[in-house]
Simulated assay, not measured.
Amino acid sequence: MTVPVLDVNDLSISFIQYQAGMRQRMLQVISDLNASIQGGEILAVVGSSGSGKSLLAHAILGILPKNAFVSGSILYQGQLLSPERQKKLRGREIALVPQSVNYLDPLMRVGAQVRTAVRRGNPPEEQRKAFQRYGLAAQVEGLFPFQLSGGMARRVLVSTAVVSGARLIIADEPTPGLHPEVVAEALNHLRQLADEGCAVMLITHDIGTALAVADQIAVFYAGTTVEVAPAADFQGQGETLRHPYTKALWRSLPQNDFIAIPGFQPSPYCLPAGCLFAPRCVMKTDRCLTAKPGMRDLRGGRVRCDHAS
């Protein structure tokens, strides 16, 4: 096996919060999270809102707020991604395709914005190559963000990541509210980047979107990874999946059984003592209520469940 472009091991993130009387408390929002991406691969990170997907992206980029405390390790190409290294690589070798097109400067023409991200070669030439590649007409470079359609704005954001020459691209919910044809186009752009050797992390709440292009699926629940599985395992009634939450998530889709399981994802303010999914799990035992399961290899994937087989 080659060294992964990105390797996240046992990542935990907590925030200091102040209560009445200026008392401090630590609120843990991510615990023992694991993820790994090879060059040429798309890892889709899926989970409901509040499961920790975007926080993972911010931790990799080194843009968490100052009251965040981080433990565990994040390796980039086999070396620890320290704060100094994050600052050096951010926007160069590690690029973000953000969730919102509001990341574009409303007072700056989009061509000029993309040119500021060019690290090698002639900036105007590289920007025009990227626009041509993504079907943006020559005159688009002179437009302001408010003059773009949603699909055009997304392509500008992808162009910004491409001209940086990044090896790791993090796409944080890049398709919300877009027409299905535009969604397919955006996903194809990410697939092209992976096929050219980039490692791509696609953050999404939509498994259907993820399965269209991803090689591996990492399923998040309440701030941790519960399963990492090949995309091909998401089929039928979920027989080849490992974790009970992953199976329930798959079977809840409209094209499958469309059956939701009882309960809800726990808040960081009241996490269970043992397995985070135990209160909703039909397989739970007394041990699950008190002991936190670790990640283990199983049938070509990884799972955080003592009962998975």
Rank of each mutant, 00 (worst) to 15 (best):
residue 181 E to Q: 14
residue 177 G to K: 07
residue 120 R to E: 12
residue 166 A to E: 00
residue 10 D to L: 08
residue 237 Q to T: 10
residue 220 F to M: 15
residue 251 R to W: 06
residue 20 A to S: 14
residue 96 L to D: 04
residue 217 I to F: 10
residue 209 T to K: 09
residue 166 A to F: 02
residue 253 L to P: 04
residue 39 G to F: 01
residue 5 V to Q: 01
residue 133 R to C: 03
residue 52 G to V: 08
residue 190 L to A: 04
residue 174 P to F: 11
residue 193 L to N: 05
residue 114 V to C: 03
residue 67 N to D: 12
residue 64 L to C: 10
residue 106 P to L: 09
residue 296 R to H: 15
residue 277 F to K: 10
residue 26 M to G: 08
residue 166 A to L: 02
residue 134 Y to E: 00
residue 188 N to F: 11
residue 296 R to Y: 05
residue 69 F to L: 13
residue 261 I to N: 06
residue 152 M to I: 04
residue 70 V to N: 01
residue 223 G to W: 02
residue 225 T to R: 06
residue 285 T to D: 13
residue 113 Q to M: 13
residue 292 K to I: 14
residue 212 A to C: 10
residue 134 Y to H: 14
residue 132 Q to E: 15
residue 85 R to D: 06
residue 52 G to M: 07
residue 218 A to I: 03
residue 227 E to L: 07
residue 130 A to R: 01
residue 22 M to Q: 14
residue 40 G to A: 05
residue 159 S to G: 05
residue 224 T to C: 10
residue 64 L to S: 08
residue 182 V to Y: 02
residue 292 K to L: 10
residue 78 G to C: 03
residue 224 T to Y: 01
residue 37 I to M: 06
residue 200 V to C: 03
residue 37 I to D: 01
residue 226 V to Y: 06
residue 180 P to I: 09
residue 268 P to N: 07
residue 58 H to N: 13
residue 96 L to R: 09
residue 256 N to Q: 15
residue 34 N to K: 11
residue 22 M to L: 14
residue 282 V to C: 06
residue 265 Q to I: 13
residue 246 T to I: 02
residue 284 K to T: 09
residue 228 V to K: 09
residue 277 F to D: 08
residue 188 N to V: 12
residue 129 K to F: 00
residue 290 T to H: 15
residue 141 E to W: 05
residue 293 P to I: 02
residue 177 G to R: 07
residue 283 M to A: 14
residue 173 E to M: 09
residue 128 R to Q: 15
residue 302 R to M: 10
residue 253 L to S: 04
residue 8 V to P: 02
residue 108 M to Q: 13
residue 267 S to L: 10
residue 157 L to G: 05
residue 37 I to P: 03
residue 4 P to I: 08
residue 234 F to N: 01
residue 66 K to G: 15
residue 152 M to E: 09
residue 148 L to E: 04
residue 295 M to I: 15
residue 198 C to I: 00
residue 113 Q to T: 11
residue 247 K to I: 15
residue 66 K to P: 08
residue 22 M to P: 00
residue 131 F to R: 05
residue 84 E to G: 05
residue 304 R to N: 06
residue 27 L to A: 07
residue 87 K to H: 12
residue 265 Q to W: 01
residue 6 L to C: 07
residue 247 K to M: 12
residue 286 D to Q: 14
residue 283 M to I: 03
residue 73 S to I: 00
residue 128 R to C: 07
residue 129 K to S: 05
residue 47 G to M: 04
residue 49 S to E: 03
residue 175 T to G: 01
residue 25 R to K: 14
residue 83 P to W: 03
residue 178 L to A: 06
residue 219 V to A: 08
residue 171 A to N: 02
